[in-house]
């Protein structure tokens, strides 16, 4: 059953979610991918604060195209999440509650979701024109020099995602793929 939820998502709000649930998210989230994660890690390790408040934040792994004049955002959709696996623990410690991306994660990401009560949400990789239609505002908030990899604060309306790893550590791929695998 589809669930309509407001961002940011608290750990409490994430608890009832189960792998395979379809969510429609509305509210603010942040974009960050490889280069931005690396900068946050360097900042924190040298005693600085991250450039954004990550409390209950949803992080969308994506780097948009330039927006056409008048459009709130250029086309955007999730990039491969696995490249951010090594930053997940740090981001959870800094307050992040959910990640939006595509593809499988390392097994330790599942353990981290369970430990921190966070979730991994699957967006629609490659469906960038459609995803852009769910964005009503976009503001560049940090690391402008990174271009497409800068951190942007997006406001989304009814952004469709599927729960990929829930806070109990159940993984969608492990549940679904064997159903359709031929074992003859």
């Amino acid at each position: 059953m589809p669930l309509y939820m407001d961002l940011p998502l608290s750990k409490e709000a994430l608890k009832p979610l189960r792998t395979g649930d379809i969510l429609y998210l509305s509210g603010p989230l942040y974009t960050a991918r490889d280069a931005a994660h690396k900068r946050i890690a360097v900042a924190v390790s040298s005693g600085q604060k991250p450039p954004i408040d990550l409390t209950d934040a949803a992080i969308f792994y994506t780097g948009p195209c330039p927006a056409k004049p008048g459009a709130p955002s250029g086309p955007l959709s999730p990039t491969t999440s696995a490249r951010m696996d090594s930053f997940v623990e740090l981001m959870f410690k800094l307050g992040m509650s959910s990640m939006i991306g595509k593809g499988d994660r390392a097994p330790y990401v599942t353990d981290l979701c369970r430990h921190y009560g966070g979730v991994y949400l699957l967006g629609f990789g490659g469906a960038a024109a459609l995803t852009a239609s769910w964005v009503i505002a976009s503001e560049l908030v940090a690391y402008e020099d990174l271009g497409t990899e800068a951190i942007r604060r997006l406001t989304v309306e009814k952004m469709k995602v599927i729960v990929g790893i829930d806070s109990l550590g159940t993984v969608l791929m492990e549940q679904e793929i064997p159903k359709y695998r031929y074992n003859g």
Binding site: I22, F124, A127
Partner: peptide, 24 residues
């Protein structure tokens, strides 16, 4: 659900003349 989403995406990209995937 995914396949229908991809068809919807292709239609929007064509209508708005924007990239169908951000990774060009």
């Amino acid at each position: 659900e995914v396949l229908q989403t991809l068809l919807d995406n292709a239609a929007i990209a064509k209508e708005q003349q924007i990239a169908c995937c951000q990774d060009t």
